[in-house]
Simulated scan of single mutants.
Amino acid sequence: MKNRKTMIAYGVFIFILLLIAMYWYYSYVTQGPKQEESTAILKAKQTAGLVATDKTWKSVWADTYWVVEGTDAENRKMMVWVPFQSIKDGQDIPQQGTEGVHSELLQNGVSEEQMRTAITSANPDLEIVRLLPGVFNGEYVWQLFYKINNSYYYQFYKFADGSPVGTPFQLPNTLQ
């Protein structure tokens, strides 16, 4: 009986150690992206005058941007694009100074909800996989990743008015 209790105690102890190790590993792996996001939020607050943030996205196409949606001191919704540059070890760091940081009032553009509604009403067969703000060919855009007829595509829409930029990029159909 005593041997069985000892084995159960060891099992519980090992299980707790595994949970702690998994938590440490998760914290270590997510440390870089969380730090990037915090840096982008701070830079958006400093340059665009945000007082609260609602949502953040990391956009990677030709360049890396963190996009922060928030509210300014006058309670107006804003979007702020903060450029990052890649360095050798795969991490991204913010560009120095305020150069490249761009902010827009959300009322001067198309919100995520408006963009989703416009996309699905124009093509009800389309399945939105991901929609996030970013930069494409120097333009501030919504980047749509979608699936239709078992094929995946990227399409960009201008943030200012929701009009398409270029033609869709079809990905190779390797998932079938």
Rank of each mutant, 00 (worst) to 15 (best):
F136W: 07
F136I: 03
F136D: 01
F136H: 12
F136K: 15
N137I: 04
N137Y: 03
N137K: 15
N137R: 11
N137V: 08
G138K: 07
G138Y: 00
E139L: 14
E139A: 14
Y140P: 00
Y140M: 03
V141A: 05
V141K: 07
W142Q: 00
W142Y: 00
W142H: 03
W142C: 08
W142D: 00
W142I: 04
W142T: 04
Q143F: 05
Q143S: 12
Q143V: 11
L144I: 08
L144T: 04
L144W: 02
L144Y: 00
L144F: 00
F145W: 07
F145T: 09
Y146Q: 05
Y146G: 03
Y146M: 03
Y146D: 07
Y146E: 02
K147M: 10
K147L: 08
K147A: 13
I148G: 05
N149V: 03
N149C: 03
N149E: 08
N149Q: 14
N149G: 04
N150H: 11
N150M: 11
N150L: 08
N150A: 14
S151C: 08
S151L: 09
Y152R: 15
Y152D: 06
Y153S: 05
Y153P: 09
Y154C: 06
Y154I: 08
Q155T: 06
F156G: 06
F156P: 05
F156R: 09
Y157M: 07
Y157T: 08
Y157D: 01
Y157K: 11
Y157L: 04
K158I: 00
K158Y: 02
F159G: 01
F159E: 01
F159A: 08
A160N: 07
A160C: 03
A160Q: 11
A160E: 11
A160R: 12
A160S: 15
D161P: 12
D161Q: 09
D161T: 11
G162A: 06
G162Y: 00
G162L: 08
G162P: 05
S163D: 02
S163F: 04
S163E: 09
P164D: 00
V165R: 08
V165Q: 07
V165N: 05
G166F: 02
G166C: 12
T167A: 13
F169L: 14
F169D: 05
F169G: 03
F169K: 15
F169I: 15
F169P: 02
Q170M: 14
Q170K: 15
Q170H: 06
Q170G: 04
L171R: 12
L171N: 07
L171I: 05
L171P: 07
L171A: 11
L171M: 15
P172H: 09
P172Y: 01
P172V: 06
P172S: 12
P172D: 10
N173A: 14
N173S: 13
N173W: 00
N173Y: 00
N173E: 12
N173D: 13
T174C: 01
T174Y: 04
T174W: 04
T174I: 11
L175V: 13
L175C: 03
